[in-house]
Write a protein that binds this DNA or RNA. Structure first.
Lengths: 113, 113
DNA sequence: CCCGGCTACCTTGTGTAATAAGGTATCACG
DNA sequence: CGTGATACCTTATTACACAAGGTAGCCGGG
């Protein structure tokens, strides 16, 4: 199994929220967007439960939109509390990734691309 | 529960490996080092199983060293395969954190400092 | 000697979370 | 009607960190 999958833990919800913050989107499309952004390993099975969780917490709101060639799409848009949560998570992420980056730097004297 | 805990998933093993790569260390001390580096929430219960796992995979090797005021310490040093693994994980981490950073940037036009 | 506190190790039970695999339904094409 | 693409959702599995608890050596005070 990919180690990256494990790295994603606790990150995916934030990433999804950020994606929706940019512009409303639906599950099937988000998988695609994420791949384009470099997060290639995200699968549908992972994001639908997440989207439900996010909605249940009030961070996003879902609404159906008719599609030309397929079933209706369930779009999500970000709510006010979602923006706040995203800001909090972003800070948390920045702190953590800085910490990890620092430890990683240590082992070779300061070089991480 | 802290969301940060979830962010750590799949990262802790890499961080521990990086720490040991800098210089050999033992569990009890690593908790302390991690706190100084900004990863404040790591507890003993989390790292001992990880250290065992890392050793079992051959990335690190353990050896006991007598201590002045306490029981002997179990130091770990990094092995060759551990260095290789660390390099791989580092790259993986850099890719992922860049990807996440990119998505995070998107929602406000490029600001994460 | 016994106790409390510090160092230092390790294990078990619990909760969170992503994945793989599978299921439902709509629309287009032949 | 069957096939394939789009699009949604759920269940069983597996991985992982954490909290709590347990063992044990060393030291100082009573």
């Amino acid at each position: 199994m990919e180690h990256s999958s494990q790295l994603l833990k606790g990150v995916l919800d934030m990433v999804l929220l950020a994606l929706i913050a940019e512009e409303p989107s639906y599950g099937y499309e988000m998988v695609d967007k994420l791949q384009q952004k470099g997060l290639e390993l995200v699968s549908e099975g992972s994001i639908y439960p997440l989207l439900s969780r996010l909605q249940k917490k009030g961070y996003i709101a879902g609404y159906f939109v008719e599609s030309a060639g397929g079933p209706p799409r369930k779009y999500y848009r970000i709510e006010k509390s979602g923006r706040q949560q995203l800001a909090d998570w972003s800070e948390e992420w920045n702190r953590l990734s800085a910490g990890v980056g620092g430890v990683l730097d240590g082992h070779n004297g300061g070089n991480h691309g």
